[in-house]
């Protein structure tokens, strides 16, 4: 009868458009128009204050692309993504699997406790962890001192600073990813897993050959979300703790764009960087739409 679940009416229906009007207005005002305006600004030299903007064509883009710092920042961004995915995709996946299949008790407690930091401001988290992880005078440093271990000064160490900032961000992000992956895994039919177990299939094979493929749409969703939202989340600890330093070691595309825009007041540069970041994300978007939305139809 009605194949695609719609209230198909014969005449042109104004109703859906009516319902969509509020979102249209809000999004046009605060998302789509700003997007176009930023694109426009990327061709100008402006400091947000003076009444005149100087048209410079693609100079800003060239300046960004020829600046060696840009490549450092781009590599940092990739490094951030890598660490974030490791901590917030791989680990929660395994944890969700374990919670579903190996652990029998305290399930509710674990879920509640792990999801809890998601409800706390990351500003609070950043300040807390800066003190807790203070390599000279913080609590961890003191305990390490008992064992004669001296903590590296992570806020001044290239590479390590990105790891620590990612860890702080993950404190908040881990819970949501964990719950979502758990949701997907616990929805997998019991019989298949039972059958595999009775056949003596080892757990890690069950994970790789059954769980992963079947929950893949959730996996890809979390993958994409972690990259897109994670990179924006790390902005907060960077802003609170290192301000992109030392010497751009902890800066990424998003932070640098903000830095150019609201700290150095180079509006055109900031806009150009933002647009380029957008392109990178756009590619990720295409992947998401192919996998997840297709996955949805596949299930149906």
């Amino acid at each position: 009868m009605n194949k695609n679940n719609t209230l198909h009416l014969n005449k042109i229906n104004m109703k859906p458009w009516l319902f969509l009007t509020p979102v249209f207005i809000m999004f046009s005002l605060f998302v789509f128009w700003p997007l176009l305006y930023t694109f426009y600004l990327s061709f100008f030299d402006w400091n947000m204050v003076s009444p005149t903007k100087t048209f410079v064509g693609i100079d800003n883009y060239i300046s960004v692309l020829t600046n060696p710092t840009t490549y450092k920042i781009f590599l940092n961004t990739l490094f951030f993504i890598g660490i974030l995915l490791l901590i917030n995709l791989v680990v929660p996946y395994i944890f969700a699997f374990v919670l579903h299949l190996i652990l029998n008790r305290l399930k509710g407690f674990y879920k509640t406790a792990i999801f809890l930091p998601a409800f706390i401001s990351l500003v609070v988290g950043s300040i807390l962890f800066t003190w807790i992880l203070n390599p000279i005078s913080g609590p961890i440093a003191e305990i390490a001192g008992w064992f004669g271990i001296q903590l590296p000064i992570w806020s001044q160490t290239e590479g390590l600073v990105i790891v620590v900032i990612s860890l702080i961000t993950s404190w908040k992000v881990f819970g949501y990813n964990f719950i979502m992956l758990y949701a997907s895994i616990s929805g997998i039919s019991e019989e298949i897993i039972e059958a595999a177990r009775l056949d003596g299939v080892p757990l890690h094979r069950i994970f790789l050959d059954i769980i992963l493929p079947v929950s893949s749409s959730a996996g890809v969703y979390i993958l994409i979300m972690t990259i897109v939202q994670g990179l924006q989340f790390v902005y907060t600890p960077i802003s609170v703790i290192t301000q992109g330093g030392p010497n751009y070691a902890s800066s990424n595309l998003i932070y640098q764009s903000y830095n150019e825009g609201f700290i150095l007041y180079r509006t055109g540069h900031s806009a150009a960087l933002s647009i380029m970041t957008l392109l990178v994300f756009a590619i990720l978007l295409l992947i998401e739409f192919k996998f997840v939305e297709r996955g949805v139809h596949y299930e149906n």
Partner: peptide, 17 residues
């Protein structure tokens, strides 16, 4: 288009907003 907007980093919209 709406879902795509999730992928727009806040730095793109912050100045005009």
């Amino acid at each position: 288009i709406f879902i795509a907007s999730i992928f727009i980093p806040f730095t793109v919209t912050m100045i005009p907003n």
